[in-house]
Simulated assay, not measured.
Amino acid sequence: MVVALAYVNQVLFTVYVLRVHDGDVSFIAKYLPEGWFALADGPSMRGVAERFPVPESLEPSVLRVQAFFELPLVLLAYVTVLRWLDRGLYRRLARSWLVWAASISYTFVFCAVEWDLRNPYTMDDIVIRVCSAVVTPLLLWWLAGQEESEAGETSPVRLLLFAASVWALGHLVLTVYDTALLYNLGHLGGRLPGAIVAMCVLVGARWTASRLRSDAGAGVALSSIAGGLRWVLVLFFVPALAVRYGPNVGAPVVAAMAGLVVCLVASVCSLRETLAGVGTRRIVLWAAQAVAALSAGGAAGYAAVLVVKDTYYEAGLLRGAGVCFAVVAAVCALTDRWCDIPETVRAEGDVGARPM
């Protein structure tokens, strides 16, 4: 619904510019960096614009409307990913104080960017963003209240479907970011084929995930990966947007270090839960699994980043992270099949295999 309303506003904005400013966006484009305001100025759009009554009333479509929708788009996308991984954890997080902390954190970043790109609508946008910061957590609180609390199941197939779903959703969010939030509706035609592919992947992955039966679950290594991911999503929830905008404000090293700290803390928390009481031998095997999985995943992820030159660096990072996670999960799942065999079973198998 948020995405649909954002695109409705894009159509209304285009009508306003075509009718009131004769298609010239310089009245607002001069205040913002390059890469904004590529109008969808075709026969169909001009036909809509010519028939629209009182186009002057659409003046609020310039920056103000999108200022309200940006926060719910980001937060809803984030908690959607968390819900796919663990519905119970999603419900607890969305109904906790963390959702308010994230709303304040994201709004502060958005307002800082607004102030850096000052224009005639800046003060209006800041007020609107503050209003959105109050409404959006209430929306998430209500939505999570409708959810049944249940523990998240971990299995190789579910995690691979999760990786595919996150990639597809991320691709769609980047498409919306470019074509709607940056007012580049004219780019939609070129991005539509990729968006359709991503939508098909997303629908297929979620349909398949909804029909999976409960299985034996995950081994030690795969459980540590899933647990680490849960911790990352919780710990990264509040500072996520500040880290994302770090490279844009000239602090890529700080952003990278912040992301690394989150990952390290999440790893420690996950390993304390997963490796508690498993024995020294299993911990050594887990370390070997981790080296193999991270090596294979890192190489695959790096190759995925290099294979395509992206307009936005987030697209390459998203693709690389998705491929890396899928390979790591696959390697952990395969090696768990051998490493998690109990010692007694392995010993009996060895005896039975010896010739008489």
Results as ranks from 00 to 15, higher is better:
Tyr16Met: 07
Pro53Asn: 08
Val15Ile: 15
Pro55Met: 04
Val15Pro: 00
Phe37Ala: 01
Arg19Lys: 14
Val20Met: 13
Arg64Trp: 14
Phe69Lys: 01
Val65Lys: 05
Phe27Trp: 11
Phe13Asn: 03
Arg83His: 15
Arg19Phe: 04
Arg64Met: 14
Leu39Asp: 03
Ser57Asn: 12
Leu75Trp: 03
Val25Leu: 02
His21Leu: 11
Ser61Asp: 01
Pro60Thr: 11
Val74Cys: 07
Ala38Met: 12
Val79Glu: 09
Tyr31Lys: 02
Ala67Leu: 04
Leu76Phe: 13
Thr14Ser: 12
Phe27Cys: 00
Pro43His: 10
Leu71Thr: 01
Phe68Gly: 05
Phe52Arg: 04
Gly47Val: 05
Arg83Gln: 13
Arg87Asn: 08
Met45Val: 15
Leu58Pro: 01
Leu85Asn: 13
Pro53Lys: 09
Tyr31Thr: 00
Leu63Arg: 09
Tyr31Cys: 02
Gln66Phe: 06
Glu56Val: 12
Asp86Met: 06
Glu50Cys: 04
Asp24Gln: 08
Val15Gln: 02
Phe37Lys: 03
Phe13Arg: 08
Val54Gly: 06
Val65Trp: 09
Leu12Thr: 07
Val11Ser: 09
Arg87Ala: 13
Asp22Tyr: 10
Ala77Arg: 04
Arg64Val: 15
Ala67Gln: 02
Leu85His: 14
Val15Met: 00
Arg51Lys: 15
Pro53His: 07
Ser57Ile: 15
Arg46Gly: 02
Asp86Trp: 04
Asp24Val: 04
Tyr78Met: 11
Tyr78Gln: 11
Ala40Pro: 05
Thr14His: 05
Arg64Ile: 15
Ala29Lys: 08
Phe68Ser: 05
Pro33Ala: 05
Leu32Phe: 13
Val79Asp: 04
Ala77Lys: 06
Phe37His: 04
Val11Asp: 07
Val20Phe: 05
Val62Glu: 01
Gly42Ile: 11
Leu58Asp: 01
Glu56Tyr: 11
Leu58Asn: 00
Val17Tyr: 01
Leu76Asn: 06
Leu18Asp: 01
Glu56Leu: 13
Ala67Ser: 15
Val79Lys: 03
Thr80Val: 12
Thr14Asn: 13
Glu34Gly: 15
Gln66Val: 09
Phe37Cys: 02
Arg83Gly: 11
Gly42Pro: 05
Leu82Lys: 03
Leu63Ser: 00
Arg19Trp: 05
Gly35Tyr: 05
Val17Ala: 07
Gly42Leu: 06
Val54Met: 12
Val25Pro: 05
